[in-house]
Amino acid sequence: MRTSPTGRQLRLGVELRKLRERAGLTATEAGQLLGVKQNQISNTEAGRIGVSPERVRTLAHHYKCGDPALIQALSEMTSDRKRGWWEEYREILPTALLDLAEVEHHACRLRGAVTVHIPGLLQTTDHARELFRQVVPEFSPPDIEHRVSFRIKRQAVLYRDTPTPYRAVIHEAALRMQFGGRKTTRAQLQHLLDMSECDHITLKVLPFSAGGFPGSGQSIFYSHGPVPQLDTVHLDQSHGPVFLDAEAQLDMYRVLLDRLDSRALDPVRSRDAIHQVLREL
């Protein structure tokens, strides 16, 4: 039995519980259908014990799930038994950060919107290091370096053979925040320009002239799963990422991100805006 299931294992259990509850079955009744005890169903839904693809399909059949795409996606979540690179940080960093890397690794698409920070997936090493130096209470030098290396390794999803498509809206305020001084800021802005030329990255700037906008107080990141039910919202908080996956929450943040995207400059004018900030430094 697992003592500390990963975020992905927990999510699989949550989705199986949702299917069971929609079918109007208790854990005891579900166990009776499968010929197992109630605690096995409960432990599976809590991510404490593994489940095979065949068992997922059997459960979906008993739960009268008529969504083949969802059933297939849930089945595939059981087959990834390899330890991800993030596991080397399990005794070093908070579990929520490891879960974030796992979500990003498996995402089909990524999108986000930030106000005062450059998105983590687009930060340079020096920019990231300066951000971690500003944390209160202060991180020790080794803690800072662990977090910097972890953040840079997360960016591998944008560089692998089949990179993950990424769409980001960055407010002009984030472009003008000089973390680390002029030299670091210039290098960060140039990195944004370089990354914006990649076919799989869409970078849009929300200028000051756009005025007020929804979600202005949040840094929002959205990971698209293989089916919409498996999408995940992660909000960047001072204490770490917070994950949301309820249907109503997913719907709300899809609308919010769409509205932000519609108010931002197009990619060409966004690059012009970044060039302008760079020239002013």
Rank of each mutant, 00 (worst) to 15 (best):
Q229D: 13
R81M: 04
A174M: 01
T95W: 09
D126W: 02
E76D: 14
G50L: 09
S149R: 15
D99Y: 04
L98R: 09
L10H: 12
F243K: 02
H106V: 08
G47Y: 00
I152L: 13
K64N: 13
E87M: 11
L278A: 08
V157E: 10
L93I: 12
A248Y: 13
L175C: 00
Q188C: 02
F150R: 01
T162D: 13
L193H: 01
P142W: 04
F213P: 00
V14G: 08
T164A: 10
R55D: 11
K64G: 07
D161I: 14
V116S: 10
Q276A: 11
A273P: 03
P68D: 15
A174C: 01
T162S: 14
H239W: 06
C65L: 12
H171T: 05
S209K: 13
I274K: 02
I152T: 04
G7K: 02
A156H: 14
L192S: 03
H117S: 05
H117R: 10
Y63E: 02
S238V: 12
D272N: 13
S238P: 09
L110K: 00
T184N: 01
A246D: 14
D245L: 07
Y63W: 07
H105R: 15
T115V: 11
D245W: 06
I49S: 03
R111V: 01
L189Y: 00
V227K: 10
D161M: 15
Q123I: 00
K204L: 09
H106R: 13
A69T: 07
R133I: 08
L33C: 09
M252F: 15
P267E: 08
H191G: 03
A73F: 14
G7N: 03
I71S: 06
E76S: 10
E29I: 03
A273Q: 10
D67G: 07
E87N: 07
Q40V: 11
E280H: 04
V136L: 13
T28S: 12
R279K: 13
E197W: 06
I71F: 12
A273R: 12
G211Y: 06
P163C: 08
E138I: 03
S223M: 12
E45P: 06
Q155H: 07
L256V: 00
S262V: 03
G120D: 12
R254M: 06
G217W: 09
R57E: 13
R109H: 09
T58G: 06
T28R: 13
R129Y: 09
K153N: 15
G181P: 05
A168T: 10
E280G: 03
I92N: 12
T185P: 01
G7I: 05
T115W: 06
M1T: 11
T44M: 14
A46G: 13
Q155Y: 10
T26L: 04
D272Q: 12
K37C: 11
Y166L: 07
D194C: 06
T95Q: 14
T184Y: 01
H224K: 15
S75T: 15
I144V: 15
I144D: 02
L74P: 04
